[in-house]
Design a protein around this nucleic acid. Sequence first.
DNA 1: TATTGTTATACTCTATAACTATA
DNA 2: TATAGTTATAGAGTATAACAATA
Lengths: 158, 158
Amino acid sequence: MLQQLFQLTVVMSGAMDEDLAARGLTRARATLLTLLYNHGPTIQSELARAVGASRRNITGLVNGLEASRLATRRPHPSDRRALLVALTPRGSSAAAALARDERALARYLFKTVTAAELKALTVSLQQLLTRLDDPAFAALRTCALRRWPLDRRRAARR
Amino acid sequence: MLQQLFQLTVVMSGAMDEDLAARGLTRARATLLTLLYNHGPTIQSELARAVGASRRNITGLVNGLEASRLATRRPHPSDRRALLVALTPRGSSAAAALARDERALARYLFKTVTAAELKALTVSLQQLLTRLDDPAFAALRTCALRRWPLDRRRAARR
DNA sequence: TATTGTTATACTCTATAACTATA
DNA sequence: TATAGTTATAGAGTATAACAATA
């Protein structure tokens, strides 16, 4: 069961990365893109706080988004130290497409799952999430993420 | 529900990475470590095939394991082109600890889940995995991995 | 003094190509 | 000719430290 959970984690994670790469995005940049889409123009240190990355890191990620013409920097109106990062129209479209396709994925994935199963699954997952959030978990959490399943698929495609 | 699945993915993935870092390992190196633990001494190109990485990449990862004194390279007895990678005693201990702690994690996570719930969860997860393996999925798969939950935890700790 | 964003530096993972030694 | 492993080179993410400009 834990192996299944790992496998699901690995497969979903890998699928996301591949899809993002096809869109010319990385996971870190997509995270920022979605954040900017949901929250509107934001200064970099706020982005760093929201995402849990260093300010240095945000500089690099925003550079990447800017190079792809998905976001721009402009001076903050009242704080001359700060820079407001905002999505370009192209960035907004990309973020909207991401959100739309995510909903399509959900419909696809759960098409064959009955309402009762979905309910049970939701309860169980919530229970697991609660367990994972428990402070007692910190002393236990561990285990390498198994990558074989996905990587074997990748290897087969070569 | 998909959000929960994402969150579970993110939390587990982040927890794994943090735990591995505490052990002086990265995910890629832990993958190799476990592979070597389960399969015994293996040549690098076989590792590359098994993990789905390039030979070049394996060179770097084995360098890392060697620098941490977790693995060693030795000549292949019959093929003078090849190098056999094997775990040191220290590497075996590390891999064994990883496997042991993984079992402890499973016991902890599913302690509060009843047998019936576990059965249902297993069935549902397997169904999702099957959906994810469907070729039709390739056309749909997408969506940025949400990192906020974990990253907020990280940020809070600073 | 504290905060904002940058440069500087370093490490890891990944990828492609070219090269060598051997099969 | 093909395979094994390496070097060379590059880009991405992350991290810390030091710095200039501003609050």
